[in-house]
């Protein structure tokens, strides 16, 4: 059984159909990269997986359980699914340690005594142990994004969703964030990520999904997909990002 099963999902915003029957399975430990033009529905699909959006048709299952915004244990579900956005959305009124430990403390994952150790642990994994007492505004974009990842890791997620997490960063800061994500991939984290970093998609992903006009247009292993795109849409997309 796949960790994530997406079956024929439809999603509308007003009259605009954004997802038109998307189906996708993601196995435990798999790294799936979603690529596609702006507006093709990539972000919306990620947000549906985390029940940030309600879907009009089809179903989404994670760990076998159907996901929807009204599910009674939505909060527990979200604690197991980390999501990182293009805008880091750190809490500006809390220092790095408190950013990372706020949710585990509130949701009863840990006690006050363990908080510091947990923060040290997850910040070490993103290479920011020395910034534990810093404030978000004192950090570079790349560092803030790594704190955002650490904040998810503190919840011990089974699944991580990344939506263009390097798109807002200066080019020289992209690498440090990708490195953290690569390390997570190596450690067996299941990851679904939307990215424009084709090098990363090629090297790290097990599978690439090309979305076009709200549909999964083409998918396959990176080497094959990039070398032999079947559809003219993917061909022209690959040409445009090269």
């Amino acid at each position: 059984m796949a960790l994530v099963e997406i079956r024929d999902v439809y999603k509308k915003f007003g009259h605009v159909e954004v997802l038109k029957g998307v189906s996708l399975d993601v196995a435990e430990g798999e790294i799936v990269t979603i690529i596609g033009r702006s507006g093709s529905g990539k972000s919306t699909l990620l947000r549906c997986i985390n029940a940030l959006e309600t879907i009009e048709g089809g179903e989404i299952r994670v760990e076998g359980r159907q996901i929807h915004a009204k599910m009674p244990d939505l909060r527990q579900f979200r604690q197991r699914v980390g999501i990182v956005f293009q805008a880091f959305n750190l809490f500006p009124h809390l220092n790095v340690e408190r950013n990372v430990t706020l949710a585990p403390l509130l949701t009863g994952g840990i006690g006050k005594a363990e908080a510091r150790a947990l923060a040290e642990d997850v910040l070490t994994r993103v290479g920011l142990a020395d910034k534990i007492d810093a404030w978000p505004e004192q950090l570079s974009g790349g560092q803030q994004q790594r704190v955002a990842i650490a904040r998810c890791l503190a919840m011990k997620p089974h699944l991580m969703l990344f939506d263009e997490v390097t798109s807002a960063l200066d080019p020289e800061l992209v690498g440090e964030v990708l490195k953290v994500m690569e390390a997570m991939a190596r450690q067996g984290m299941t990851m679904i990520l939307v990215t424009h970093e084709m090098g990363f998609a090629r090297n790290v992903a097990n599978r690439i999904v090309f979305m076009h006009q709200g549909r999964v247009w083409e998918e396959g292993p990176p080497a094959e997909l990039f070398a032999h795109p079947k559809t003219p849409e993917l061909k022209s997309f690959i040409a445009s990002v090269k």
Binding site: R75, Q76, Q79, I83, A103, T107, M155
Partner: peptide
């Protein structure tokens, strides 16, 4: 997005 960041971490 600050509300949403909290919601994504499973906060009420």
């Amino acid at each position: 997005a600050q509300w949403e960041a909290g919601a994504c971490l499973g906060l009420s």
